[in-house]
Design a binder for these strands. Sequence first.
DNA 1: ATTCGCTTTGGGTAAGAAACCCACAAAAAA
DNA 2: TTTTTTGTGGGTTTCTTACCCAAAGCGAAT
Lengths: 161, 161
Amino acid sequence: MNTSTDLLIGEFSRTLDDRFRLSLPPELTGPLTASGSRMVLAKERAGCLSLWPAAIWKPRIDAAVDVVRSKLQAGLLTQRVGQLQDLGRLLSTRHKAVTLAERGRLVVPEGFREFLAVEPGADLLVVGAAVCVELWQPAAWTAFVTAEMPEFRRRIDELTT
Amino acid sequence: MNTSTDLLIGEFSRTLDDRFRLSLPPELTGPLTASGSRMVLAKERAGCLSLWPAAIWKPRIDAAVDVVRSKLQAGLLTQRVGQLQDLGRLLSTRHKAVTLAERGRLVVPEGFREFLAVEPGADLLVVGAAVCVELWQPAAWTAFVTAEMPEFRRRIDELTT
DNA sequence: ATTCGCTTTGGGTAAGAAACCCACAAAAAA
DNA sequence: TTTTTTGTGGGTTTCTTACCCAAAGCGAAT
């Protein structure tokens, strides 16, 4: 059994079935589901979806939303309704709650398929990103790797010094 | 049951029926109708209609109109009759009272169909925008999301600080 | 005022999607 | 080789959605 302090690391190739189902490797689902099978799927960067444990994602976003909600209730945002609308709209489309089915299987919901630009039957890369798991469109993944790999040494130095 | 302080959040795909009726998802109608089923449908931006609880929309617009009316009465607008005319015209067409039928069903009224540029049977996106629900033409929605998503962080900071 | 016709509204139902469950096959471990 | 674990496919059931039809409301015209 894994604890929640384990980093999610590893790169795996998977294929979407015709119902947009994807099974995650046990090496990642173990640590991921340590705090329950409720997850959040988020559009954070192009060609990639991030899968976060709800226990980590929700508190982060809820804190911000709570501030907004209490301001709204206090009447502090009546001059900024337009901004509030804009934010609400982005919140609506940016992330969605999902749950892992048996055998670590995930359904990529409508709206996220188009974002990833994948067809049923497409190949994906499932990549551990330390604190979350990411689903990458293959072309976007190779582009990321070639662009960022030279920075590896600098990045590790940044975080270890 | 929901309170009026809940933010309206969520993205759903729906299709207009042949009589321009649209059924809203229960996740949104619940909070929306917390203060009654009287709504206002408004043209706020191109390719999109906003649906507001009348309890929120009416006070806001009435307050503004009252200011204009008293200014007019005080003779402060005699130099700006043209502007006033323009405003009156927009007030006439910008919003319209509607009521949700049973099953959260809404009729998109004449005059608003053309604004959305939709045919009967068209697909729409129903999006929560924190304080109201919006009906988006699909092309306009994807344009908005791609343009505004990079601003997400900035927008949340604006409203929480 | 009454009747006829059209438009609008409500509800039943069928088609479709999603969740759940199981089974088989391939791969890894014993 | 045998056994267990894991990935993939498919079947079934249940719920939602949208289409269609019937009834009611409204307006007009005789």
